[in-house]
Amino acid sequence: SKNWSEDDLQLLIKAVNLFPAGTNSRWEVIANYMNIHSSSGVKRTAKDVIGKA
């Protein structure tokens, strides 16, 4: 699996709070948010995000 930096983990926590349970396509939305805002340049999929959340 791809390494997660501390910044990416913080971003994931922020995204999970921004897009609560019940959000349509929640994990796709979170992955997309991370891909836009992450400084690491690593592209995450919904599966990556679910695996780490």
Rank of each mutant, 00 (worst) to 15 (best):
K2D: 12
S39K: 11
K52A: 13
L11P: 01
A15S: 08
A21Q: 14
A15W: 03
A53Q: 11
S1T: 11
N3I: 14
N35G: 03
I50N: 07
S39L: 11
E6L: 05
A53Y: 03
T23R: 03
V49I: 12
D8A: 00
I36A: 14
Y33V: 01
S25T: 09
H37N: 05
D7E: 15
L11I: 14
G41L: 08
F19L: 03
D48E: 14
W27T: 05
L12F: 11
G41V: 09
V49K: 00
T23S: 07
I50E: 15
D8N: 02
T23I: 08
A46N: 04
K2V: 05
G41R: 12
W4L: 07
G41P: 10
A21S: 13
A21Y: 07
S25A: 11
I36R: 14
A53S: 13
A53R: 04
N24P: 12
V16R: 14
D48M: 05
N32R: 11
L18I: 11
A21P: 11
N24S: 12
V29E: 10
E6R: 04
A31G: 03
D8C: 02
G41S: 11
I13G: 15
S1K: 15
E6S: 15
P20E: 06
Q10G: 10
N17C: 06
G51K: 15
V49L: 07
W4I: 05
V16S: 12
D48R: 02
G51I: 09
S5F: 03
G51M: 10
F19C: 04
I30P: 00
N3S: 07
H37Y: 12
L18E: 06
K2W: 06
S25R: 14
S5C: 06
N35W: 01
I50V: 14
G51R: 13
I50A: 15
K47S: 14
N35F: 02
E28P: 03
S40F: 04
A46V: 13
L9A: 13
S39H: 14
S39Y: 06
K43A: 10
L9Y: 14
S38R: 05
E28K: 07
N32A: 12
L9V: 11
I13H: 14
A31L: 05
A15Y: 03
E6F: 14
S25E: 09
S39W: 09
I30H: 00
S38V: 02
A46Q: 11
N24Y: 07
V49Y: 03
K52V: 09
A53H: 07
K47N: 12
I36M: 15
T45I: 06
G41F: 15
Y33N: 00
W4F: 10
W27Y: 06
D8L: 03
M34V: 14
S25H: 12
D7H: 07
T23K: 04
D7V: 12
Q10K: 10
A21R: 12
L11W: 03
I13Y: 13
Q10M: 06
S39G: 14
L12V: 04
L11N: 05
K52R: 10
E28S: 13
Q10Y: 08
S5V: 03
A15P: 02
V49A: 08
F19A: 04
E6C: 14
K2T: 13
K43R: 12
P20T: 03
K43N: 13
M34N: 03
Q10R: 08
S25P: 04
S1R: 03
K2A: 07
G22E: 14
D48T: 04
Y33P: 01
D48I: 00
